[in-house]
């Protein structure tokens, strides 16, 4: 059962002695439903990863970083949660994120979706859906509403951030341009 796009799984493991880019590894790519599950069933769930690790699943050819030309002017819908929420919600929300990515749940806006990232961190874990520059706010909000519905989250739990704001922030938190 072919997927609409070919996807790549990336793994990031924080090693402070190396450059950020060197800690990011392309694991593999897949483009069928069967290969997706073969991979998913074979790797650790996010809740089993150590702090400082990330998984990223992006359309093949797009690197999971702000610097990629497809990401540069885009943004992300972000859900973040404290450690208490981790064991009940993290793995479920990551799987739902992957299913809406590979199933292309965003209809005509699916083309604008670049990928998704889960960050395992000491204070708060994060899951984000990344998208390229959008032609309208309505398109950004459409993706956010569909995504929130996929995750089955209550109101005001996901926020949209522009990558350029995140990339240039100093110590201040990144503002949410929209909250759903």
């Amino acid at each position: 059962h072919p997927l609409n796009s070919r996807w790549a799984l990336w793994f990031f493991k924080n090693d402070r002695s190396r450059a950020w880019r060197d800690n990011l590894q392309l694991v593999t790519t897949f483009d069928t439903v069967e290969d997706f599950w073969a991979l998913y069933n074979h790797i650790q769930l996010p809740s089993k990863l150590s702090s400082g690790c990330d998984y990223a699943v992006f359309k093949d050819g797009i690197q999971p970083m702000w610097e990629d030309s497809r990401n540069k002017k885009g943004g992300r819908w972000l859900v973040s949660f404290s450690r208490q929420g981790r064991y009940s919600e993290l793995d479920r929300l990551w799987l739902e994120t992957l299913l809406c990515l590979i199933g292309e749940s965003f209809e005509e806006q699916s083309r604008a979706v670049c990928g998704a990232v889960v960050n395992i961190r000491t204070k708060r874990d994060k899951i984000a859906l990344w998208m390229r520059e959008m032609e309208s706010q309505a398109a950004v909000l459409h993706i956010g509403r569909v995504y929130k519905e996929c995750l089955d989250l209550p109101t005001k739990t996901i926020g949209y951030q522009v990558h350029a704001d995140a990339a240039t922030r100093s110590n201040s938190p990144v503002k949410h341009k929209f909250v759903l």
């Binding site: 609409n4 439903v33 073969a38 199933g103 209809e107 996929c150």
Partner: peptide
Amino acid sequence: GKKQYDREFLLDFQFMPACI
């Protein structure tokens, strides 16, 4: 055409043996 799959369809394949 564009291939869209809903979550139930995708989940049906999770534990399906690869060669059938």
